[in-house]
Structure formats: structure tokens, C-alpha cells
């Protein structure tokens, strides 16, 4: 049974139809790469999944629970949205780390705020805080930043910042981790370290949706690839199918343009 089902999502900004008939599903432990040119709706799709945009039509189902239904306002209540969006994690193109907090605090902040609400928080405050710290340290060491815990974001490189952002997203243990062009804001020599971290996550069977322009990476890491153009899913399949033997003319054109680069 799929962990995520996206059914017939539609989104328009004014007159502009950004997403149309978007349906796909994702199995636990699977990695999907979404490719396509700029303006094809990839990012908007991720933003819809993370409740940063509200689709005009369609449903989003996680673990068989309908967490969003455009036709049912009761699935869109502010308070519940806040909890439901925790099914997803999102790593932004521009990292969006909190500049006034250290690397470690960036990872622990949301955990601390959520822990406040736990019924046993008052009695076990110390223990819970230690747990949170340990978890954050473990995640930061997983992304190779054990030696940067007390640094502020502006003191580390873009690649390191993005790895902190990945640790921050992982800290909340989302069912599905989304990446929005995680290396597009990075110098070429820094993309490698970020891709390596994502690759390791894929090897650990983290469920992921990756919007990316790194075609070789998508081919290597993804279990399935979705090609989007002008707001619709044009083609989908295994990386071998989509990259090796694309059926659609538009996919072929897109990949040709990319290979020329």
C-alpha cells in the first residue's frame, strides 16, 4: 500500500494553470525524482504537498488518511494543517536556515517547540532536552557536520548550510522528505557533498521526492522518475525507461537539451 497518494491535483494562479491532473503515488522507502524545465510546476507541486500552497482541486492521502481534500474544508483547518504537514519535510532551494541560531539550534528549535506540548514535558524536561540534543547531534554527524555545531549559518558554506537544512528536516522524522532543487543555489563544487548526503538517505530507504536539475543524480538515485511540463505529468517510469528510452516527444526534447549542456 502506498505511503502517499496524490489524486488529481490542480492549481491555478489567477488565469495561469500551474498544475493539472497531477496524480501519482509513492511507496514507503521509495525515491521519486521530478524533472522538468523551470516553470513546469515541479516546485508548486512540492509546495502543495507541504501546505505552502492550497490546491484548487484534488486530494492528498498519506497512510490511507485523507490529509487534504480541496472539496472538503474540514481538512484545511489551520491547527490540523500544522500537524498534518509534519508528514512531510521540505528542504528548500535557498536553505532558509535561521540566521540567529547556531547550526545545532537550527536543528533542535522545532523539536523543542513541539516537545513543549507533550503532556510529560514538565516532569521530564531535562531528559527530553537531552534526548533532543542527542538526536540533533546524531543527525548532524550523519550529514558530516559534527564539528560545526556552534557555528552560525553565515560562517559555513552553502553546501554545509544545505546539509544543516537536511538534518533540520530529518529531525522531525517526516514520512516523506521533499527536496526542492536542493543544489540549484550552490556552486558546482559544493553540489557533490549535498548529493552524497541525499544518496546516503536513499540507501537507508528514506522516502523522498526530489525535484532536481541534476539528471545524472536523478538517474542514479531515483526508483522512479516523473517528467513534468507545463503543469502536467508528461511521462513517468523507471530511470532506465525515462532517460534511456523516453516515449514522449517532449521528454526527448528536454533530455536532448540537457545532454547538450
Amino acid at each position: 500500500m502506498p505511503i502517499l497518494e496524490v489524486k488529481d491535483i490542480e492549481k491555478r494562479f489567477g488565469l495561469l494553470q500551474v498544475l493539472q491532473n497531477i496524480s501519482f503515488s509513492l511507496e514507503k522507502g521509495e525515491t521519486i525524482a521530478i524533472i522538468g524545465s523551470s516553470g513546469s510546476g515541479k516546485t508548486t507541486l512540492l509546495r502543495c504537498l507541504n501546505f505552502l500552497e492550497r490546491p484548487d482541486k484534488g486530494r492528498i492521502i498519506v497512510n490511507s488518511e485523507v490529509i487534504f481534500d480541496a472539496a472538503d474544508p474540514s481538512t484545511q483547518r489551520e491547527n490540523e494543517v500544522r500537524e498534518k504537514r509534519l508528514h512531510f519535510g521540505l528542504v528548500f532551494q535557498n536553505f532558509n536556515l535561521f540566521p540567529q541560531y547556531t547550526v545545532l539550534k537550527n536543528v533542535t528549535l522545532a523539536l523543542e517547540l513541539l516537545a513543549n506540548k507533550r503532556p510529560d514535558y514538565k516532569q521530564r524536561k531535562k531528559a527530553i532536552q537531552v534526548e533532543i540534543q542527542d538526536r540533533a547531534r546524531a543527525l548532524l554527524s550523519q550529514v558530516g557536520l559534527s564539528d560545526k555545531l556552534d557555528y552560525y549559518p553565515h560562517m559555513i558554506s552553502g553546501g554545509q548550510q544545505q546539509r544543516v537544512a537536511i538534518a533540520r528536516a530529518l529531525a522531525l522524522e517526516p514520512d516523506i522528505l521533499c527536496f526542492d532543487e536542493p543544489t540549484s543555489a550552490l556552486d558546482p563544487e559544493l553540489t557533490g557533498e549535498v548529493l552524497k548526503v541525499i544518496r546516503e538517505l536513499a540507501e537507508r530507504n528514506t522516502t523522498m521526492i526530489i525535484v532536481t536539475h541534476e539528471m545524472d543524480f536523478a538517474r542514479d538515485v531515483a526508483d522512479r522518475v516523473i517528467f513534468m511540463d507545463e503543469g502536467v505529468i508528461v511521462e513517468r517510469g523507471s530511470p532506465q525507461e525515462v532517460f534511456g528510452n523516453p516515449k514522449e516527444e517532449r521528454t526527448r526534447q528536454f533530455l536532448t537539451r540537457y545532454n547538450q549542456k
Binding site: 507541504n50 501546505f51 505552502l52 500544522r82 500537524e83 504537514r85 509534519l86 512531510f88 519535510g89 521540505l90 528548500f92 535557498n94 532558509n96 536556515l97 535561521f98 540566521p99 540567529q100 528549535l109 522545532a110 517547540l113 513541539l114 533540520r168 528536516a169 522531525l172
Partner: peptide, 26 residues
């Protein structure tokens, strides 16, 4: 930047938490 609010949102923070914990000092 809008991204600061969005980063708070996807981490499940409330509007108040986002304003007082992230935005205000900046």
C-alpha cells in the same frame, strides 16, 4: 524573506512562534 516564514511553517511552528522565535530578532 518569505522563506523564513515558510521554513517555520514546514517545521510545524505556529504563527506566534514564527514571529517571536524567528522573525522578530532579525
Amino acid at each position: 524573506p518569505q522563506g523564513q516564514y515558510e521554513a517555520g511553517q514546514v517545521l510545524g511552528m505556529t504563527k506566534m512562534q514564527i514571529f517571536f522565535r524567528i522573525i522578530l530578532l532579525q
